[in-house]
Design a protein around this nucleic acid. Structure first.
Lengths: 334, 334
DNA sequence: TTGTATGCGTTATCAA
DNA sequence: TTGATAACGCATACAA
């Protein structure tokens, strides 16, 4: 391995001078600089990033904890983060937890061990105690997810309001018996969407039937299973609001399987606007989260924290959008 | 930041002893060990991974260059890599190139700068000169993709044979006029699949019409566009072989749009077996690459190279599988 | 079983 | 404008 020492010797200068040239510092004579650059090229010298990082106590690297990289919802967020990080000369390290909390803990240690300068977590499943320990001492931003009573920097949309909005849209279409497919109520995220659902019904004087609220894994299979359960209830439902697009697609499959036509017989709406949702047939009506922007905002926020700059606000609430496609329509069975 | 020094002072031992305890080395008295561990807990000491890596000249980290993290084809491969890497105590750093070659170059530098111990590239778009430079001096494995005349360690399936197999399946179903949707012929991958297509036709004495071979981006849009072009040709085609599942799904959409029924009027087959292919309706007939196994094998191979162990073979050719679903069937229009 | 001392490759301080 | 040298935090050869 060729080091500053080798370059210095070959160029007949000190290692300090080599270092200055490498870092493109001022105060170095043109001739010297040219000579050193020539030698660097000749020897094919590459600065050892590890040594530099160790000396500077900074890696210019940020770890992004992704709950499940197989979920396309996270891709665009990742793009947004990466886009902004690159702009500031940072690398991102993608840590895929594969939905296992212990893995998350493992990656948090990378931070404690100074391998990264900051963390963006797209998950909030981690033990609260560890989270607090980390948050107090290290730069961290939580995006998409969030915890109860937490004062951690955060970037999300207003899930309550968005859920309420899309359920109100169904109500506007004449639906009065609307079911809700959702997931682990331990996640505040799902409780918020549930609350939005409830308050939309309540404000429009519609009856609330908790038997129409079904819980399962946030997956196609989960949505499929619960939609079938719903159908077996034999109640006069005409629409369903799924708290995630994957569950909504599962519901769509169950309905097709049962011989029901969407949106003629039944309306289905989701949440998130993942890539599949516009490709699947029928294309899904859903709430679009500004994923790229969430990523950008999260990095910008983290960057400020890492550099000790003041934050305009601890929590950023971004705008969502109701995207109406083919899976929903007016209730024709009133 | 608390370091070995702090721990040593607090425990009244030398830093060497602390280091021994941290690394769980033998030759340290039980009492001393317990004491040191107690102090470590009390001070909440975390070894600085950067310093350790620098000292050992090894990061226990492998970079995986992914052409496009938004393409679900790569997820399972990533899982396979991660699974095996974790088993050996390695971290993986996912570098998303976003289909930009310059980004790939950028990440290769991480290797040259000793930030990672090895590279798994799922892409082969990089400049051949850089690739060679890297391959000669550093541990690297290329998976899924490959270059002409290259003697780099490699893990793939036999694309020629797989393409031939799925086209032969179409021929068995009575199809005689089979089109081919493919992408950039600069990629050896696509040329191989094209060759498989040609040789299946040739061996069964079927006419070869190069007008039925269409090139476009390997995306849903690309498949959609080219399927429409094909339809406009007005030729008696009854089946199409797309060199990738995304293009196949685009073709499916174009056919539906044209009022054609799949598989009654038309058969469509793809390649790769991405997640969406089994969810889309009609579910896609395709070639399944053993993605998880490719990932595992690639890491195992890299691990051997990193440790100077001999390789059983330079190139591993894994088995593929023909997966028959709903998008293909017998030719009823003969 | 433990401690001392050196070096990993770089950056940065200070002096020249 | 340049050079000598001291850190950064750890692992390890060698000595005790």
């Amino acid at each position: 391995m060729v080091t500053v020492k080798d370059v210095a010797k070959a160029a007949g200068v000190s290692i300090a001078t080599v270092s200055r040239v490498v870092r493109d510092e001022a105060n170095v004579k043109k001739d010297t600089k040219d000579l050193v650059l020539k030698v660097i090229r000749e020897l094919n010298y590459q600065p050892n990033a590890l040594a530099r990082q160790m000396r500077q106590q900074s890696t210019k690297t940020v770890i992004v904890i992704v709950p499940d990289i197989g979920n396309s919802f996270f891709h665009e967020i990742l793009f947004g983060i990466q886009d902004t990080a690159t702009k500031y000369g940072y690398q991102i390290l993608i840590a895929n937890m594969n939905n296992k909390p212990d893995v998350e803990t493992y990656y948090f240690n990378a931070l404690l061990q100074k391998q990264v300068d900051g963390v963006i977590s797209l998950s909030a499943n981690i033990a609260k105690s560890l989270m607090d320990k980390v948050a107090n001492a290290y730069p961290i931003v939580v995006a998409c997810q969030y915890l109860d009573n937490s004062d951690m920097p955060n970037v999300t949309i207003d899930n309550i309001s968005a859920a309420k909005r899309i359920v109100e849209y169904l109500i506007e279409q004449g639906h009065t018996h609307i079911a809700h497919l959702t997931s682990h109520p331990t996640a505040l995220l799902y409780r918020d969407r549930f609350n939005g659902y409830i308050s939309a019904l309540a404000e429009h004087g519609l009856p609330i039937d908790l038997e129409l609220v079904c819980y399962d894994e946030p997956s196609i299979e989960g949505g499929y299973r619960q939609m079938n359960n719903l159908l077996e209830l034999g109640k006069p439902i005409s629409a369903v609001f799924a708290a995630g697009d994957t569950m909504a697609i599962g519901a769509l499959k169950a309905l097709k399987n049962a011989g029901l036509k969407v949106p003629d017989d039944f309306s289905v709406v989701g949440f998130d606007d993942i890539e599949f949702s516009s490709i699947f047939e029928p294309a899904l009506t859903t709430i679009r989260q500004p994923k790229f922007l969430i990523g950008q905002t999260a990095f910008e926020k983290l960057f400020k924290i890492m550099n000790g700059a003041p934050l305009d606000s601890l929590k950023d609430i971004l705008d969502y959008e109701l995207v109406i496609r083919e899976s929903s329509g007016v209730n024709r069975h009133k």
